[in-house]
Nucleic acid binder design. Structure first.
Length: 492
RNA sequence: GUCCCCAUCGUCUAGUGGCCUAGGACGCCGGCCUUUCACGCCGGCAACCGGGGUUCGAAUCCCCGUGGGGACGCCA
């Protein structure tokens, strides 16, 4: 790698707040950051924005990191925690105060709230009126004597405007008249979001700020902080990616059902499927739908991210998941299916472990056409991996396991017993032998196929009849056919 | 209410002024295959939000509407 390239190596960060699980929208933002970093050989950094001690949930840190790991978004740096960097923010805050670029505001939250409500009543847009901006030393010490702790507000020149140069949206102009002297440090000395972000992005050498569109209105404020701090924000690229919306076109929230990454993990969705789905939300490469991680890294570019928000469509996710179940490594998928089988209580741990890895892999191949998630697959494996059939579809019994089918099932057993030994017990051989036997007795496969299927699996639908037989093995096939016949007799 | 963003099938999208009778994918509906379901294959339904410009020519450029979303905290 040339020196030039190494000096321009981008540094990006994903900066979640640990106040909720990592949801799919956040995951997509993380993915875009990660892809951009990987594509350019840059650094992907994780930073937890946990300055709000009230809302902060430390127990969410690990699950968020686990979600990122599961998705395959590996970190180059971090995680950093803003809660551990308070002194850094305070230093910068002190500097702004000393330089007169910020001032202490002694208004209480209650006073501010009052004014906010007033503004609401008169349908005015609330902005802080700058009451404390020009306090005299006397007034200031008076407040201090009252025991008031000041919050630090940045001075914004009400005239003029700030332009956000966004890679996706172009130039967005904000009139300062729309802004106010907003608080950058709380009266308890903790920094606020806009301030901590800027200090961090500067000190961490972030070159590209890639975040969700909901943050674009914060950007002019942050730009003003860059300037106040004496930093040149034109060196930083800002990229606001479109939001991921729920079906009702509003912001994703708990009431929308599954929105967290881990919920999809638990449904038996593969990480490559979720990543593939997410990357196509707002980004595309011609008509291509299926992307491996390598292809995404190679082909991803921010310029190809389009600006409009996207709705999360679980159906398409499941289609992709099915694709990856169809084409993935059966040994890996088998192991995962086994884990879900245990986790979801479909198999006891002992039961699942008694089945070999090869067998789990085989059942994946056997059932992958008709299962969209690994949990579904684990569930539908039961008739084929367990010794005993636990379930017969009652309607299926009524319809297909009628007494008049007993004779035909006997013929099937005969065919299975007579013509085929354990070695030649293959679908092809079984197919030929069973058909021949039935025809010799003036019957046809069509007449027994469904009864036979119900006898073997308890269900009316599933893999090919002879594939099922091959998979189950001679012993079980005979057992189950005989049992079905005895069920017929009992019915009589 | 104010500010900001967005606008192609139900959904994800291709499209960067003529290649568009608007392409692909999911979903949906038919058909084929077949012992069932599925897979697969074939086919179908389905969109440029509206109005003005610019231009020989607009899905593509501009303006105005309309609609949707987001932001307006000593939250992030």
């Amino acid at each position: 790698m040339s020196d030039k390239k190494s000096t321009t190596r981008p540094r990006v960060r994903f900066a979640p707040s640990p106040s909720g699980e990592l949801h799919v929208g956040g995951a997509r933002t993380a993915l875009f950051n990660w892809l951009f970093a990987r594509h350019h050989g840059g650094a992907f950094i994780l930073r937890f924005e946990d300055t709000d001690t009230d809302r902060n949930k430390p127990e969410l840190i690990e699950p968020i990191m686990e979600s990122l790991r599961w998705l395959g978004l590996d970190l180059d740096e971090g995680p950093y925690f803003q809660s551990q960097r308070t002194s850094i923010y305070q230093e910068h805050a002190k500097k702004l105060l000393a330089e007169g670029k910020a001032y202490l505001c002694y208004c209480t939250p209650e006073e501010i709230e009052e004014k906010r409500k007033m503004a609401q009543v008169t349908k005015q847009n609330f902005r802080y009126d700058g009451k404390c901006r020009n306090l005299t030393p006397d007034e200031r010490s008076q407040f201090e004597r009252e025991g008031r702790k000041g919050a630090l507000r940045i001075k914004i020149d009400p005239h003029g405007s700030t332009v956000v140069r966004d890679l996706i949206r172009g130039d967005v102009v904000y009139a300062h008249a729309e802004l106010d002297d907003f608080v950058i440090q709380r009266s308890d000395g903790l920094p606020l979001y806009n301030f901590a972000v800027v200090v961090d992005d500067v000190t961490m050498g972030i070159t590209h700020v890639i975040r969700a569109d909901e943050h674009i209105n914060n950007t002019p404020k942050q730009l003003l902080i860059y300037s106040a701090l004496g930093f040149d924000y034109t060196k930083v690229k800002f990229v606001h990616v479109p939001m991921v919306l729920a079906k009702d076109r509003t912001k994703l929230s708990k009431r929308h059902g599954a929105t967290a990454v881990f919920e999809y993990l638990e449904k038996g969705v593969l990480p490559e499927a979720l990543v593939n789905y997410l990357v196509r939300l707002g980004w595309s490469h011609g008509d291509q739908e299926i992307f491996s991680m390598e292809e995404m890294i190679q082909k991803f570019s921010l310029e190809a991210v389009h600006p409009s928000p996207a709705i999360f469509d679980e159906e398409k996710l499941l289609w992709l998941n099915h694709h990856y179940i169809m084409h993935g490594d059966p040994m890996r998928l088998g192991e995962l299916a086994k884990q879900f089988a245990i986790k979801k209580g479909i198999y006891s741990e002992q039961e699942a472990n008694a089945i070999s890895a090869d067998r789990w892999a085989a059942v994946v191949n056997f059932l992958k056409e008709r299962n969209r998630t690994l949990v579904e697959l684990a569930e539908s494996s039961k008739p084929f991996l367990k010794d005993q059939l636990e379930y017969y579809d009652p309607k299926a019994i009524e319809k297909f396991l009628t007494p008049d089918k007993a004779k035909l099932l006997e013929h099937v057993i005969e065919a299975v017993k007579e013509n085929i030994d354990n070695v030649s017990f293959t679908a092809t051989n079984l197919d030929a032998a069973v058909r021949a036997k039935l025809e010799a007795n003036g019957s046809s496969l069509k007449e027994v196929a469904q009864p036979c299927r119900v006898a073997l699996s308890g269900l009316t639908q599933g893999p090919g009849l002879f594939e099922m037989m091959e998979f189950l093995g001679k012993k079980r096939v005979i057992e189950r056919l005989e049992k079905a016949i005895s069920m017929n007799i009992n019915k009589k």
